[in-house]
Design a protein around this nucleic acid. Structure first.
Lengths: 183, 183
DNA sequence: TCGTTATTGACAGCATACTGACAGACTGCA
DNA sequence: TGCAGTCTGTCAGTATGCTGTCAATAACGA
């Protein structure tokens, strides 16, 4: 038995898992600090943008667009509807589906939130020099992209218009069928 | 470049906030995939390591060591105690405090989990080339470190032994008194 | 056409996280 | 010594996220 010594806390601090968790903690804290007055969370913001980009989208396709779990998205949409930022409407086409639209109020909030969002994104990266930021973002984007299928809620951009475009039915081939084509 | 008045989803995808959230999602998914059989989450793992490193630590100091919110840590410790991986004991010194110790069962689980943890950390970074991983980790560590005070639960290593070492009482000067001295 | 399969939104249950508040215990200092 | 202020664990409330499951509905295939 090699009897490798167990990891110490100092080891944990330098591991990607710990650092990603910390960075997410920090990013959310900064976001809320900037947007808290507008009562808008990172997740709600992303959902709003996606709905405005794709009016009439349904919840399942939205979850693929913003990479939320379908279960989680339900409660997020409920909160957005309670705040009257979006509406959920049934469709005659498919009685299972409820389509999503942004309200004028939602549009106003989004416009108002923009400067705060920008400040938040700026602050997260502030400790790095401009050149470092660029490297960081490139590597992070690559990492997220190539790990896309690791999470339960992978990003699926090509799904967004599937319904509307009457795309051919999907054939799930055991595991990850849709490798995204964009890089 | 962004001639659009409002951000589109394509913009959101390239913003640090979105990418950090995705990466955390992915990191947790990979961790759970590797360690799920052991019924161990990333947070529980970090707490276990810290308790083993610092037997007799109390919950408040532990929360500073692993950068959890004090409120959150309560329920985490409760779950660890239910699984009999740790014990919480009152101390005669200070009736408010409950000190934490790992059980033999906790030690066994930690030892058993090590290979899975290593695999998980490895998999998260797998899409990057070795040189890229190094750059990524360096920049990420720097970013987390310099943003440390942005979250509610900043890392406070110097607190860990405060009680035991009978350190001089800290003087809170309006706001965040402990600016980390290490950079 | 009709049974099988897939999809959709919803829900229950668990685990992080954060805000804010609290009672009880402790400490420093007047 | 007494008391004002601090610290500790805990709790209620809110918001993500995940694993499952379910009924209703839709689409497919023999």
């Amino acid at each position: 038995m090699p009897n490798k010594p167990s990891p110490s806390m100092q080891d944990v601090y330098t591991k990607p898992g710990h650092l990603f968790r910390r960075m997410q903690q920090i990013a959310v804290a900064i976001f809320v600090e900037e947007c808290g007055a507008l009562d808008l969370t990172p997740v709600q913001y992303a959902a709003l943008v996606a709905i405005r980009d794709d009016p009439g989208i349904d919840a399942t396709r939205l979850s693929a667009l913003v990479a939320f779990d379908r279960s989680t998205l339900g409660s997020v949409l409920e909160r957005l509807e309670t705040k009257e930022l979006i509406v959920r409407r049934p469709t005659p086409d498919d009685k299972r589906v409820k389509v999503l639209h942004m309200t004028p109020r939602g549009a106003r909030l989004l416009a108002k939130a923009m400067p705060a969002i920008d400040r938040a994104q700026e602050r997260m990266m502030a400790p790095l020099a401009p050149a470092e930021r660029k490297v960081m973002m490139t590597l992070l984007a690559k990492l997220v992209h190539l790990n896309n299928d690791a999470s339960r809620a992978p990003l699926r951009i090509e799904h967004a218009n599937a319904r509307r475009a009457a795309a051919p039915r999907k054939r799930r081939v055991n595991g990850n069928a849709n490798e995204p084509s964009h890089v």
